[in-house]
Amino acid sequence: MNGLQALLDGIMLGGIYGVIATGLSLVFGVLGVVNFAQAEFLMLGMYIAWFLWAWLGIDPLLAAVPTALIVFGVGFVIQRTLIERVLAAPPAAQIFLTVGLMMVLENGALLAFGSSFRSVNVPYQSEGFQLGSIFVGAPYLYAFLAAVLVSAALWLTLSKSWLGRAIRATAQDGMAAILMGVNIKQIYGLAFGLGVGLTALGGAVILPYITVSPTAGGQFVVLMFTVVVLGGLGNVAGALLGGLVVGVVQSLSAMVFPVQLQNLVLFLIFIAVLAFRPQGLLRES
């Protein structure tokens, strides 16, 4: 495998990591809570998309939209009933509420769906595009394009719509937002729903090249946090960039290290960034 190919593979993966992690960053940016259960919503999204494919024959790339809507609703309810109550509590309560949620979701999926691995069958699964010496698998390319599309839509929503402005205002200064007539409790719910919905959408579009099981979320936990911390917790644009960086680092390090050690490089970067630049690589200290 040559360097250019690895770079391209990294970007394809990184785009998806960006979208998945954007949801996490959005939740932290607005609510100030690190959602340790975020990766479980990825798993949830994968299952919903899988069932939409298995029962109704919908392609996961299209199923991503209803999947995101369903998870958005689930997230909204969870925020209003559970997370809302610890927003003013010490970090320990917030951390362990979402950790509890993580345990319930992961093991609830194990109880409901069993431990078997499920995957989808789509016509373009083994297709690809050859460009000189470089090859791109169709599922990877489509997932990446979906990620780009979603990122653009998110950027438009956050910067142009009233809702986006209200979300940003709440993130910057909750009290000022209230004074401007924003119902911030509603915004907290919507932001949480939007955050987990985005992550679930990311789970749906990668379904053509990945299998889903109750532990699918667990594989992404540290990866997601690395992406978010690289970009700066709460920084949505940073998360997209962080995603690309992590994707490229992962695929380039695969050329040097054995597969098992691939994530080790990421974890070490993660700890180093947390220790030396906890505000992320982009922001001024």
Partner: peptide, 11 residues
């Protein structure tokens, strides 16, 4: 502190 410490120890 807080969330950041939890994340780093997890890693």
């Amino acid at each position: 502190k807080g969330h950041y410490y939890a994340l780093a120890t997890l890693a």
